[in-house]
Design a protein around this nucleic acid. Structure first.
Lengths: 337, 337
DNA sequence: TTGTATGCGTTATCAA
DNA sequence: TTGATAACGCATACAA
């Protein structure tokens, strides 16, 4: 493997000139640059980025930490981060935490180890290093996205979960539903709390009284959607719609309802939040709230870049818009005789 | 940020000893090691991995290149790679190619740039560097998975696409279907060709004559599943089942069929391949072939590790098993009167 | 416009 | 068991 020294020798210049030709081409004479280009070509030289990063004290890489990429939401998010990173010559390293603190911490060490410049976090947990921070300390290069814990104070990009949930609840109420069930997520998570509060807010605004007996807890998985819907149906309580805190549970709920020979939306309307790709092609198509997943990733990366320039002056929060998407899974309740 | 020198000073030893205490603890006296541990603790020292990698000429990182992580298959695959990588102290960097040669090549440069030791490729394209190889050259640290082009000769892990497809075709035939349509992928890809050949093989084995008019081409997307099913239904040809080359298209097909007021499987049986998570909870549940996605990732990473130890002696191919999963989307054809 | 020389933070060789 | 020191490959301050 050839290095900068070989190129310098071959081109008959100093290594400093080679380095400049690569990094600040305008500082080197055209003719010299040409010789260097030839040498690079001839020796198939590839700069050692490790050495460059070590010297410049900058890795030009960021880590995205996510619990799992089994989630289609995550995918689009990562794509968004990639988009902006690419434009800025930054590499993106994806880290999977599985929700485990130790794994997250180990990945976070890559920052201390200078292998990455910052961390973009799409998870409910956060690095231990963050907890150990006191007001006087230097700010940490961490950007939070959506699922953050509200306790930590870092640059963040988020959706208005509360209003999004209220909006879809309003949609269902406007169709004429009055007995409306809720399939919630883990109430330990801020996002879940916000969405549930949003559902309730939307119902109250429509003059519908809340009924805690129609609220069932899940964990955002397909499977818990099935379980939740079954629990509701088994309870014997009457309801004509289920508001689910995410699409996965909604798809599970639809599956469970169909499995009992009931029909969506004729017997029960179902809604989600997220607008996964599969939501459009479910049977029936799922009424949901579209989140600009990719844009969220893009904004997160921009916050990261801002931070690199000015750790203290960087923007603290970006709120991205959501949008109601009505499909076949919601309809007016069928009058019972 | 403290470095190894600070620790050495604080502990009253040389930097060589500190380095040893970290990498070969058994070579240093217990008492010394303790002093060093204390110093590390006190100064919150984190080794600079960049410097270490530069010196050791090894990054302990591999790149996984995938077209997109919008595909749930990809997710499990990455998870598998992570599993094995983690056990071996190797970092995993995810690269998205979007099927673009230039993006793949740019990521491949990270290997020349020493930021990564190898590339695991889950894509139909391959780095230009691979094309430029001639028999005498050193082998490249590239492992191929599943969607490789059969032209390139590198360590690879794959599924027996041919037999998998034949098996599910046999299942449908055994239910009594005789007019069976095929929704294929891009025939430029080896995997698609294998699966289509497999379908035809399975049908022939069951004594069913092939009918090219019942073969429609798609691109593995949900949307093309919808389009393909519509094309078949519009053709006016009779068929009682559709074999799809992947789950996404199958889910799209089910959606299209339902949208026309037809029922799956009563009117038309549908099958996929992949066993995506969503396949289980579709309406109806999708009959498909399960691929051990995570295991594929694990095997790929193992091949990579083997390669690192012995570039020439490493295993060349691993074939992982598949499994037929029968769900509600297939049934015996309904007798027409 | 170019060259010299130093340092980035490690690891590894060799000698003690 | 430990220490001194030379790389690893590059970027940059300073000098020319």
């Amino acid at each position: 493997m050839s290095n900068i020294k070989d190129i310098a020798a071959k081109a008959g210049v100093s290594i400093a000139t080679v380095s400049r030709a690569l990094r600040q081409p305008n500082l080197v004479k055209e003719k010299t640059a040409l010789k260097i280009r030839d040498a690079i070509e001839a020796l198939d030289y590839k700069p050692n980025m490790l050495a460059a990063s070590l010297r410049r004290q900058k890795a030009d890489a960021v880590i995205i930490a996510v619990p799992s990429i089994h989630n289609p939401f995550t995918s689009a998010f990562v794509q968004g981060v990639e988009n902006v990173a690419r434009e800025n010559g930054t590499k993106v390293l994806l880290a999977l935490t599985e929700g485990r603190q130790d794994l997250l911490d180990r990945h976070y060490e890559m920052i201390a180890g200078k292998q990455a410049d910052g961390l973009i976090l799409l998870d409910v947990i956060s690095p231990s290093a963050l907890a150990g921070q006191t007001p006087g300390d230097d700010p940490l290069p961490i950007v939070l996205a959506c699922e953050y814990d509200s306790a930590v104070d870092q640059p963040r990009v988020r959706v208005n979960d509360l209003e999004a949930a209220a909006e879809i609840a309003a949609h269902v109420a406007s169709l004429g539903h009055r007995q409306i069930a809720i399939l919630s997520g883990p109430s330990a998570q801020r996002m879940s709390r916000d969405r549930q509060r949003g559902f309730r807010l939307g119902l109250r605004r429509a003059g519908i009284e809340e009924d805690d007996a129609l609220v069932v807890g899940g964990d955002y998985s397909l499977r818990s959607g099935v379980a939740g819907a079954n629990a509701l149906l088994d309870s014997g309580r009457k309801f004509t719609a289920i508001l689910c805190e995410n699409d996965e549970m909604a798809l599970g709920a639809i599956h469970a309802i169909a499995a009992r020979g009931l029909r969506v939306p004729d017997d029960i309307s179902v809604t989600g939040i997220d607008n996964l790709r599969f939501a459009e092609f479910a049977n029936p198509g799922l009424t949901t709230i579209a989140l600009p997943n990719e844009q969220i990733g893009e904004e997160a990366m921009r916050l990261m870049l801002d931070f690199a320039i000015d750790p203290d002056g960087a923007r603290r929060e970006v709120v991205v818009p959501h949008r109601l998407i009505v499909r076949g899974s919601t309809a007016a309740p069928t009058p019972r005789m």
